[in-house]
């Protein structure tokens, strides 16, 4: 296993995102690349949002199919792993060579783990993390 941190020198965003894209300072992602460089994946930072009841995270996962993705959560961590077919094989069939990747995101604390949901569309994974009741904002009544 080796870690690959891919920074595209042509993109101003790559440096920008390394500082600001993950307010929870995402764990360093671990990328395995033993078959070929076709599997190299850039650091996939999450974009985080919140409203009164939920946190939301968006992660770019181009080329990943829903059947090849699994998401696990524990307190303060969201771990997702996925199979990536060889881009260069010319075929996306099940027999295409592939490799498994895993990434861990640090998530806010105080999340109702049982209520976490995930949606994958157009290469974007969107996570919805319900806030635990004690983390929700409470309006204080002034007497």
């Amino acid at each position: 296993m080796k870690m690959i941190r891919y920074n595209d020198p042509g993109s101003a965003y790559s440096e920008w995102e390394s500082f600001f894209a993950d307010p929870f300072r995402a764990f360093a992602p671990f990328f395995r690349s033993t078959l070929s460089s076709a599997y190299e994946r850039p650091h996939q930072p999450a974009e985080w949002y919140e409203d009164d009841d939920h946190y939301y995270a968006r992660v770019e996962l181009p080329g990943v199919k829903r059947s090849d993705l699994s998401v696990d959560a524990e307190d303060g961590l969201v771990r997702f792993s996925y199979e990536l077919r060889d881009y260069r094989s010319g075929e996306d069939s099940e027999s295409s060579p592939s490799e498994r990747f895993e990434q861990v995101l640090r998530s806010p604390e105080g999340v109702n783990l049982a209520g976490i949901s995930a949606k994958l569309a157009d290469g974007i994974l969107e996570l919805t993390l319900p806030k635990a009741p004690e983390k929700k904002a409470v309006r204080v009544e002034i007497k």
């Binding site: 595209d8 042509g10 076709a38 181009p62 080329g63 881009y87 260069r88 157009d122 290469g123 974007i124």
Partner: peptide
């Protein structure tokens, strides 16, 4: 941004796959 891409040739065509998430 410049998107990531891969390309390969065959006898019939050149195929390019470009990552454009979202």
């Amino acid at each position: 941004y410049k998107p990531r891409y891969h390309s390969h040739y065959s006898e019939e065509a050149w195929e390019v796959k470009v990552s454009l998430p979202g």
